[in-house]
Design a protein around this nucleic acid. Structure first.
Lengths: 106, 106
DNA sequence: TTCACTTAGTTACTTTATGTAACTGATATT
DNA sequence: AATATCAGTTACATAAAGTAACTAAGTGAA
């Protein structure tokens, strides 16, 4: 009777990454810090509602940081923490796989 | 006005991998071909209904193959194709990240 | 000053996805 | 004949995501 062979840390990582939109938001932030509206516009079909939820979750996980610039009007920038930046190799492997195994035209 | 900077193949890969349960099912199959009930039992909280849906999707994507052994009773084995096996490095990177950045105890 | 616009969201409502549990049909075992 | 196993399916309930309109604080133009 084998029970839960799955490493809980691995499971947690998959849980984070496989939540809808999360990967694409992190990937978008890999290109540099940016504002809410910029992320929203870069990812078609992502609603402000879900983006707002995901950014809060990612902030809570310590993957994203939210910085308020008290300019006028106020500017809020989202960026990756070191923990978030460390996700880059995963996206590197996803890119490799997709280029080798997925058809160009769909 | 930048539009859809996202590579469609990368986007497709993320879409496949970030569907709930998909990654864990593929990861489970990395340990070798196995039967429906085995996958179901290895992943707590995964229902037969969703497993059945996911296996069909993965078969359709060419990531999983379903082989019927006409024994009695019939045995059905699910396994990864070459395309599916090629996902292994992605899980390798997820494992690395989770061990470096996620706490042991939660 | 009033009207319109931008940013960073939130709220209310609808549609879709997932979870739960019971069920099916073929074979095997007791 | 009754019970069990495997590989699912069906019906129903709950949770997540999509859609669109709205807010509040500030800016800019008329």
């Amino acid at each position: 009777m084998e029970r839960n062979l799955l490493c809980p840390r691995f499971e947690k990582a998959v849980e984070i990454l496989s939540k809808r939109w999360t990967s694409l938001i992190v990937f978008q932030l890999l290109s540099g810090p940016q504002r809410f509206i910029n992320i929203d516009q870069a990812l078609p079909n992502l609603s402000g509602k879900v983006l707002s939820e995901r950014l809060k979750e990612l902030e809570h996980e310590g993957i994203v940081k939210r910085v308020v610039f008290p300019e006028s009007p106020v500017r809020i920038e989202y960026s990756l923490t070191d923990k978030g930046l460390a996700l880059a190799p995963i996206f590197g492997e996803i890119t490799k796989w997709s280029q080798e195994w997925l058809p160009v035209q769909e």
